[in-house]
């Protein structure tokens, strides 16, 4: 192979073939699907994120949650995701149209979070879990996110969103532990994760 021109042409064409087939075709085929309105409930599907949850999406990215938690539910033929209760149905392309960046993930060091807002719908639980995961999930290897919380002196009335912590985590008397805006946003995002609505291409029953 001594002809540089044919070498360069081949290198160019093989790559172009893959780029068109694996990137451009998907982009035009299903990269522009839209949300839709449910006939039953009049709800927009997937429901758009609130401003606070959108901010929480950024916090999720900054802490690198995606390295241990996936957000995709596989169908019945691929693993036990449905049987484990990680979703009512497999997730499909339309579920992610608002996600920038996507958090599909490739590891399940921790459980899948596609529907965590439905499985654990209490903000209190999420705050306790983020502050000290092992108190609510014994044996967990998730790191604590104490840096998302502030210890501060109670001035006047105790804060309404102070954490109710027991044992060694409890703040000294006269002090309280409150979530930072980042922690509140993150929990709002986690609570918004509920992909249990039915879609035409992914019915729930």
């Amino acid at each position: 192979m001594n002809r540089a021109a044919s070498l360069f042409l081949g290198i160019f064409l093989t790559f172009t073939f893959a780029w068109v087939g694996l990137v451009l075709v998907p982009y035009f085929q299903f990269g522009r699907v839209t949300d839709l309105v449910s006939e039953d409930t009049g709800q927009t599907l997937p429901p758009p994120l609130s401003g606070l949850a959108q901010r929480g999406h950024e916090v999720y990215a900054a802490q690198g949650c995606v390295y241990c938690h996936s957000q995709q539910v596989r169908g019945e033929t691929q693993g036990s995701d449905l049987a484990r209760g990680w979703g009512a149905r497999r997730t499909v392309a339309r579920d992610y149209i608002g996600e920038r960046p996507h958090f599909l993930g490739t590891m399940r060091t921790g459980p899948d979070l596609s529907n965590i807002g439905r499985r654990q719908s209490s903000a209190e639980w999420h705050h306790k879990h983020l502050y000290h995961p092992q108190t609510v999930s014994p044996g967990s290897i998730m790191p604590a996110f104490r840096y998302l919380y502030t210890l501060r002196k109670i001035a006047g009335e105790p804060s309404a969103d102070a954490l109710h912590l027991d044992g060694a985590d409890a703040p000294p008397p006269g002090w309280e532990i409150v979530p930072t805006p980042d922690a509140k946003a993150l929990v709002a995002y986690l609570l918004s994760l509920d992909r249990s609505y039915a879609l035409p291409e992914a019915p729930t029953d």
């Binding site: 299903f30 990269g31 960046p101 996507h102």
Partner: peptide, 11 residues
């Protein structure tokens, strides 16, 4: 950024 699951493919 393009839409969610196409991002995943490109990723």
């Amino acid at each position: 950024p393009v839409q969610g699951s196409v991002q995943a493919i490109i990723n």
